[in-house]
């Protein structure tokens, strides 16, 4: 295979990763933007989404598409419920103090991860994709499911944009993000909004989990990578900025996909993590984000 086709393959892989990443990071960004909570357990919501997808698919016999469709429904709902409950029981009681909530979400990370280890075990298990179809390029074949993931991500990101910009719920969220106190004064129940936003952020992570599980298998430690990459994306895109997040996800997904194919993936992650830490120090509003208000 020549360099051109090789690059095409790397680009496709990068786009798939960018697709999943933008959904995951959008959830993290939303939670940070509205609640000012850095959710270290966000990756575990991806993992939980994937594991629940496996349970759902294995319970349903018949065509794999059935199981997959059911998972796409059940997984986000269950994960959202878990997140809603943890927001009510833990985060709210901490008054959203930034340091305390980070420590609490670290606690949540271990509880989710280790509970899954207890119930689901240490094995990695695959879920069948809803359809098997390979698109034949002249140089290689490529799974149509992966292209479906890219399409699904575009639809979901469009949905998020619509909800945030065009609906009352979105208006409430943006108001809470802009200025909590004023929003409260205008009668917006900021406290209840927080719980829904935390649940929504987790549901996005769960959807990402369901989408990757046919590609990647479900495993109780699979949350670490999405967490790190989402952090990177949200930091480059500017904390709390949704359009910055999408742009950054494409940038990170593509460059990670391409660099990982050319060099060692470990080196790629090392360099990008280091660079992003420096971005956070020297350009705290992100490379793509606007200047602070």
């Amino acid at each position: 295979m020549g360099f051109g086709p090789y690059l095409l393959l790397a680009t496709l892989e990068g786009l798939v990763q960018a697709a999943v990443l933008s959904i995951t990071a959008a959830g993290l960004s939303l939670v940070f933007g509205v609640m000012r909570v850095v959710n270290v357990a966000h990756g575990e919501f991806v993992m939980l989404g994937a594991v629940i997808a496996w349970f759902t698919a294995s319970l349903l016999t018949g065509h794999p598409a059935m199981g997959f469709a059911a998972a796409l429904l059940v997984s986000p709902l269950l994960v959202g419920a878990v997140a809603f409950a943890s927001e009510r029981v833990v985060l709210r009681r901490l008054d959203y103090n930034p340091e305390a909530t980070i420590v609490a979400t670290i606690g949540l990370l271990y509880i989710l991860q280790q509970t899954v280890l207890l119930v689901y075990g240490p094995d990695a298990r695959p879920v069948d994709p809803p359809f098997y179809y390979t698109i034949r390029f002249p140089w290689f074949g490529y799974s149509a499911y992966k292209l479906f993931v890219i399409g699904a991500a575009i639809v979901i990101m469009g949905g998020i944009w619509f909800v945030l910009q065009k609906t009352r719920a979105g208006l409430v969220m943006r108001a809470a993000q802009y200025d909590r106190e004023t929003a409260q004064a205008f009668g917006i129940p900021v406290d209840r909004v927080s719980a829904w936003v935390f649940a929504l952020g987790a549901m996005l992570a769960a959807i990402a989990g369901v989408l990757v599980v046919p590609i990647q298998q479900a495993h109780y430690l699979m949350g670490a990578d999405p967490l790190l990459l989402s952090f990177i994306v949200v930091i480059i895109g500017g904390l709390g900025s949704m359009s910055g997040t999408v742009l950054a996800a494409v940038l990170v997904g593509l460059s990670d996909g391409i660099i990982s194919m050319m060099f060692s993936p470990t080196l790629a992650k090392m360099v990008s993590t280091l660079l992003v830490a420096l971005v956070l120090v020297f350009r705290p509003n992100g490379l793509l984000g606007k200047a602070a208000r």
């Binding site: 901490l94 420590v103 609490a104 606690g107 271990y110 991860q113 280790q114 509970t115 280890l117 207890l118």
Partner: peptide
């Protein structure tokens, strides 16, 4: 149990909520 790290999560949350 193999899931012994569960205790880290539980203790962290208990501490931060009730015993800071």
């Amino acid at each position: 149990t193999t899931a012994y790290l569960l205790v880290i999560g539980v203790v962290l949350i208990v501490l931060i909520l009730w015993f800071p």
